[in-house]
Design a protein around this nucleic acid. Structure first.
Lengths: 184, 184
DNA sequence: CTGTTATATGGAATAATGTAACAAAAGTTG
DNA sequence: CAACTTTTGTTACATTATTCCATATAACAG
């Protein structure tokens, strides 16, 4: 049984990171994508929380770890990771966060639907807490119908879409549970 | 009877501009908002087409008209216009376009629902043609249900949302009709 | 109308975000 | 190894947006 898709402040995030990295390694190996050292480091930065992180914050963090890097390198890695479907970009804040879907399920199944996930046309919904910065990601299949309906009514040929919803997450509605503020 | 909400390449845009400016004047007068000379000039730039325009393009255009302006002035006007609901911001391209809803209806009615339009919580859908840059804006009431459903399932308190759909508009699917490319 | 306050704009500098162009290094393949 | 493709490094620069402080204009009370 699953709890809310929206990550809680007090969850054990090391699991999330470990699962994501494990998945990324396997996913890239199976698809022939090259998760290089640089790309993996960038992914680790993005996966470090459920908040969105900016390219220059990633740059700063990696430089602080002693790596000599230019902005363009970070952007290139982010492009790769986004293309691979491992991370998403929040358009409204120029920042990136790790894809949160399916990891639990996929990890122990052999590789069911492994190659078909994280498609660009997935009807993704991002719930963005403006208080703590945490992001919840939901794949909402009914959104497809809505999009197709609007598009066909206007003879529009859809390539991709993104629904960003801003507001306040549960934990931030209950300030007693709150632990950390958005820091972007 | 109305044709497609998505603006066609061959429509008479002077009507759109005139209607929008007329509406803006009346709307601001009625609501007490101050549509100053600067703000009006910026709005005219944004309303000059159904494509999204960037802040620095507006700046260039106005400077070319002989106005001495700094970026910050344009941004301040854009903020005002957005707050007023007269323009929208495309998050994915850092650009702005004029709100396209309701003008025809409102202009000849006395002022029905004039003060309640362009609310931040309107379930707006933006159809963005990646070929010509034209933007179609639709208010899709069924989106409210979807958003509320996703939000309540995750105990999320919604403040506002935006759905950006990218693809190709009718005219650009029929290249024979095509007139101008996106220039952003 | 005058002084007071709030609101709007001007002006300079700079911050934050993102990319171009080309060279070097590392991986892939025959 | 040699030729090729892909990735990364390096430098410079382009684009987008904001901070800070001064000035100007509008709104309003007395």
């Amino acid at each position: 049984m699953k709890q809310s898709l929206f990550p809680q402040h007090d969850h054990d995030h090391s699991d999330c990171t470990a699962n994501l990295m494990k998945f990324a390694d396997r996913y890239c190996q199976q698809t022939g994508l090259r998760l290089t050292k640089l790309r993996r480091m960038v992914l680790e930065q993005v996966a470090a929380s459920h908040k969105a992180i900016g390219a220059y914050q990633i740059l700063d963090n990696l430089q602080a770890e002693g790596h000599k890097l230019a902005p363009i390198s970070v952007y290139r890695s982010l492009d790769f990771l986004q293309e691979a479907g491992l991370i998403h970009r929040l358009e409204s804040t120029n920042s990136y966060f790790a894809c949160q879907r399916n990891f639990d399920e996929d990890l122990d199944g052999k590789n069911k639907s492994l190659l078909s996930r994280c498609s660009k046309v997935d009807p993704l919904v991002f719930l963005i807490c403006e208080d703590c910065g945490t992001i919840g990601e939901v794949e909402e299949s009914s959104l497809v119908n809505l999009i197709n309906s609007v598009a066909s009514a206007n003879h529009f040929d859809v390539e991709r879409s993104q629904l960003e919803i801003k507001g306040t997450c549960t934990s931030c509605q209950n300030p007693s549970i709150k632990k950390s503020k958005a820091s972007s």
